[in-house]
């Protein structure tokens, strides 16, 4: 594994870690949605690093295809999450913050 590849991979892993830890903390829901997206970017970066085959070489196309699909999925998921979040605020403006566990 080359240094360049390693730098990207480690950065990707760090971003995933940061994103997930932010997503799990109690913050406004919108912040959590963004955090999850950031973590997603980290995963994509990881894939890009994996695709690297050395300087001057063509990159492995498969991870790129995977990342493209992943981006589409992430956009859809974020869209749905934001739509639900907006609806939630619309219905009960005071209901900011994390979802209550109605069962507890």
């Amino acid at each position: 594994m080359e240094t360049t590849q390693l730098i990207y991979a480690v950065t990707g892993a760090l971003i995933i870690g940061l994103g997930l830890s932010a997503a799990l903390r109690d913050e406004p829901l919108l912040a959590r949605i963004i955090a999850i997206n950031i973590a997603g970017v980290g995963v994509f970066l990881l894939f890009v690093a994996i695709a690297y085959r050395g300087f001057g070489q063509t990159a492995d196309p498969i991870p790129h295809a995977l990342v493209l699909t992943g981006i589409v999925v992430a956009v859809a998921a974020s869209g749905l999450a934001i739509a639900i979040n907006r609806r939630l605020h619309h219905d009960s403006p005071s209901g900011d913050g994390p979802a209550e566990d109605s069962s507890a």
Partner: peptide, 16 residues
């Protein structure tokens, strides 16, 4: 809505 959002977000974390 709250339950759905929580379900969605935790599911996304799992997927990631």
């Amino acid at each position: 809505l709250r339950a759905a959002l929580r379900y969605l977000l935790l599911g996304l974390i799992g997927s990631l």
